[in-house]
Amino acid sequence: MEQTWKKFEEWLAQHWPEGLSRLNPPATDEQISELERQLEIKLPLDFVACLKVHNGQDGFLSFFDGMEFLSCEEIYSQWAVWKELLDAGEFKDTFSEPDKGIKNHWWSSKWIPFTHNGGGDHLCLDLDPSESGSIGQVITMWHDMEARELQAKTFGDYFQGYVAGVLSGQYVYAEEYGGLINADDV
């Protein structure tokens, strides 16, 4: 994880120094433990390793293809919004169209958002996949669309693939979008 971050930070230093300067310092063991206590889960080790490099970012900038990289505090804040809706029965008769390996929920309290686009959409760690899925897989969660898409089998796979995409030019810095986006969208 540290090597992947190092490559990403080197790219940021050259192509988007402001973005690099907005990454938070590492999460402390106490911050991670508190998040796990609040969520009543254990986070995947690869994601914990990521948080121990950078605890999200400061302010809204798009680090992950138009999405903010959430800190421990913001992960809980975003999760709590969805949990309140779930507990109020908002999703009782609402289902998604999931890829293989993802349960057919609109939202699950075992889906842990680590990004946010400012409009209710997230990338989530899925800690309760279907039988053919993998614990800790990365999935999409759209607030107004049924699709629940599998992005990667693990956070580590997702992050390595994303950084490789940045380094190869698949994702670029676009000032008008406030961060990194898919080059096809520029």
Rank of each mutant, 00 (worst) to 15 (best):
M1P: 09
E2Y: 03
K7A: 14
E9L: 01
W11G: 07
L12Q: 05
A13I: 00
P17S: 09
E18Q: 09
L20Q: 11
L20P: 01
R22F: 03
A27E: 02
Q31V: 00
I32E: 02
I32G: 02
L39D: 04
E40V: 10
K42S: 14
L43V: 03
L43T: 05
P44T: 04
P44M: 09
D46H: 04
A49W: 00
L51K: 01
K52S: 08
V53A: 00
H54V: 04
L61H: 06
S62T: 12
F63M: 12
F64Q: 00
E68W: 05
F69V: 04
C72K: 04
C72G: 05
E73F: 03
E73Y: 07
Y76C: 04
W79S: 10
W79V: 10
D93W: 11
S96K: 04
S96Y: 07
S96P: 10
K100I: 15
I102D: 11
K103W: 06
S109G: 03
K110G: 08
I112P: 11
G119E: 12
S130P: 01
G133M: 04
I135K: 14
I139A: 03
I139G: 02
T140W: 10
M141R: 06
H143L: 02
R148I: 12
R148H: 10
E149R: 11
L150S: 13
L150Q: 12
T154D: 12
F155H: 09
D157M: 10
F159W: 15
G165H: 10
Y171G: 07
V172Y: 05
V172K: 13
E175K: 12
E176C: 06
E176T: 12
N182F: 10
D184I: 05
